[in-house]
Design a protein around this nucleic acid. Sequence first.
DNA 1: CTATTTGCAAAGTATTTGCACTCAA
DNA 2: TTGAGTGCAAATACTTTGCAAATAG
Lengths: 145, 145
Amino acid sequence: MYSHGICQEVRIIISTAPTHYRTSRIRNNILDYLKKSTAHPSANDVHQFAREQNPRISFGTVYRNLNILVDIGEVQRLESSRGKDRFDARFPQHAHFRCDTCGNLFDLPLVPDQLIVELSEKTGHKISGHNLEFTGICSSCSSDS
Amino acid sequence: MYSHGICQEVRIIISTAPTHYRTSRIRNNILDYLKKSTAHPSANDVHQFAREQNPRISFGTVYRNLNILVDIGEVQRLESSRGKDRFDARFPQHAHFRCDTCGNLFDLPLVPDQLIVELSEKTGHKISGHNLEFTGICSSCSSDS
DNA sequence: CTATTTGCAAAGTATTTGCACTCAA
DNA sequence: TTGAGTGCAAATACTTTGCAAATAG
């Protein structure tokens, strides 16, 4: 250990998160895409879309932007996808159904607001988000058999 | 490409899954542990528990057994955990609440049977499973502040 | 005996991160 | 000019898999 005098470099990093967000064309494009899409795209889907406009856009950028959009509440992250998150920017929020056979993700006509009020009252927890997924066999797959 | 005569080795593997399951002490222990636990253990938790009894039990074995238990319906896999699955063997099934502050997972008094009947009727999908998670700040964390 | 289960280590998959550079405000 | 955004590649975290040895029925 060397010491050349009494000066030392001291770095204290409190937080690496930005204090505010700037506008970014990529982020806006991603949000538009998610708002228009009904397919609940995965990060990979978003990446492919973004590359159609600018082939140099990287996975890192896609993931960072998706995390920011989730962070600021513009996008809902659907975590139930067995190792692959999906994203949904369409409101009002709703629940989803995943078909075990074809893998498709469908919207369900379940608006959880009332449930949330009831559960908050019963438990005392402040509920601010949800991730509601049902699974089974979709109507199309079950009529095929 | 070489051909030494007309004989070829042909392997057709239809499925690698066993035709039935044997009893396994490890698997039974894991199931007992999950039935008794209220903490919604992760695969890592299960591994640690299993190693208390036999330190040589590997992650592969734990994951394989958890997958089998989910497969045969003894255990519910909670996928909403941001990269880390958790497991629950307590029935009747229920919904969960995850605290964004302390990270704990709580049970919610929501029995989805009625919901499932309604949604099946409305959509025509055959709903057989679910993964219902709400998020926010738990009562304990919100009273701390 | 025969197919399942296991330990071990290596591979796989989805996501995050460090760094230097670019860009918006 | 300053801090946020980006591309790239490497790192991380969790889970699965191939193989030979052990084990249940």
